[in-house]
Simulated assay, not measured.
Amino acid sequence: MAGSFISVDVVGQKQIGQALNRLLKQGSDLEPALRDIGEYLLESTQQRFIDQQAPNGEPWDPLSPKTLAKKKRQDRVLTETGTLVDTLHYQLGVNQLTLGSNMEYAATHQFGRESDGIPARPFLGIAVFERVEILAILRDHLN
């Protein structure tokens, strides 16, 4: 035969098919992995209140003198009674994970409110090291 050609022999076709079917089955029910990710992100987000920093590692803006004068706990930003951090929770949906707080003022602190002079102090988000852990959780789930 003139010209060039390539021949491919598949070895282990049965094992490959079984592995792909297993991967498809595990990938169709992500709830266990999402639950693990939710628990991880909940703890990590709560740690931000202790560290007083945004997901990107930047420290939160300090409290204004006006706010300091009203606070009982002057040493902690976003922590007077602990309600905000205590209301953090996650919810699972169909292949979906949502993390946040149901407190109305959570958005004010996350995004700031310029009209009242309140700077953004983001506590929700995913840090680079958290992305690595999320991928590890998903990898473990799919193995």
Rank of each mutant, 00 (worst) to 15 (best):
A107V: 11
G27P: 07
F111S: 06
V85N: 04
I118D: 07
A136R: 15
E130V: 08
T45D: 00
I134F: 10
P119R: 02
K72R: 14
L63E: 08
V128L: 05
D51S: 13
A106I: 05
Y90H: 14
R139G: 12
L88W: 02
E43K: 15
L34D: 03
G12F: 02
D116H: 08
K72W: 08
G57V: 13
A54D: 11
R139Q: 12
F123L: 02
A54P: 03
A19V: 12
F49D: 03
K71D: 06
N102Y: 11
T87S: 15
Y90Q: 10
G27I: 10
P55G: 06
T79A: 00
I37G: 01
G38T: 07
I137H: 02
R35M: 08
P32K: 05
L30M: 13
N21P: 00
A120F: 03
A106H: 09
P119Y: 01
L30K: 11
I137P: 00
L20H: 11
T98A: 14
P32M: 07
E58F: 09
L138K: 03
G125D: 05
P55E: 07
R76C: 01
Y40K: 12
Q53I: 01
Y40E: 06
I134G: 05
G117D: 06
E31A: 11
E133W: 07
R48S: 01
V128M: 11
G125M: 04
R76T: 00
E43R: 15
P62R: 08
L68Q: 06
Y105Q: 06
L84I: 00
I16C: 03
R76M: 04
Q26D: 14
T83W: 01
N143C: 09
F129R: 10
D36W: 10
T45F: 00
E114S: 07
T45H: 04
Q18H: 09
E31C: 06
N95F: 08
A33L: 04
I118P: 05
I16N: 04
I37Q: 02
S44D: 07
I118V: 14
Y105W: 12
A136W: 05
E39H: 11
H141K: 06
Q110K: 04
R35F: 15
N95P: 02
I134M: 11
L97F: 14
T83P: 00
S64E: 07
I6G: 12
H89M: 05
E39T: 07
H109Q: 15
E114C: 03
T87V: 05
S115W: 09
S115Q: 13
L88H: 02
G125T: 08
I137W: 08
Q110M: 10
V128R: 05
L42Y: 03
L20T: 13
N21H: 11
E133T: 15
G112T: 03
L20C: 07
Q53G: 04
Q26H: 14
L41W: 01
V10K: 10
N56H: 03
S101M: 11
T67I: 03
K72L: 10
S4H: 14
L20M: 14
R139T: 14
L23Q: 08
L142C: 07
G100A: 12
P65Q: 02
L68P: 04
Q96Y: 03
G93W: 06
L78G: 00
E39M: 08
R113S: 11
E104M: 10
E58Y: 09
M1G: 15
